[in-house]
């Protein structure tokens, strides 16, 4: 791993297109600004890791339990909730 020390307002360039800038440091938190082309995906690693975890769960879904859920769903018709919590 490459380790660099940076001060506030200083930045790092990755490749030709990605700039990472330290915007502020406050109470143990670092605020980072990232400029990257639209096609480069930037996410907090927890988000990515949780998706991975949920995908693994989805891949473990067995036909027998899915078919059980399917018949419950057909009875339940739980279609009225909004998408957000």
């Amino acid at each position: 791993m490459l380790i660099l020390s940076r001060k506030i307002e200083e930045s790092i360039i990755v490749g030709d297109t990605i700039t990472i800038k330290i915007l502020g440091i406050h109470e143990g938190q670092v605020k980072i600004g990232i400029e990257a082309p639209k096609e480069i995906k930037v996410f907090r690693s927890e988000v990515y890791e949780q998706i991975q975890k949920e995908n693994i769960e989805a891949s473990k879904s067995e036909k027998t339990s899915v078919s059980k859920a399917a018949s419950m769903l057909r009875q339940h018709k739980a279609g009225t909730q909004g998408a957000k919590q």
Binding site: I51, E54, N55, E57, A58, K60, S61, E62, S65, V66, K68, A69, M72
Partner: peptide, 13 residues
């Protein structure tokens, strides 16, 4: 969809 046991605890992403 992540199927859980029991089935009614199943979730979706």
């Amino acid at each position: 969809v992540a199927l859980k046991e029991p089935v009614d605890g199943s979730t979706m992403n």
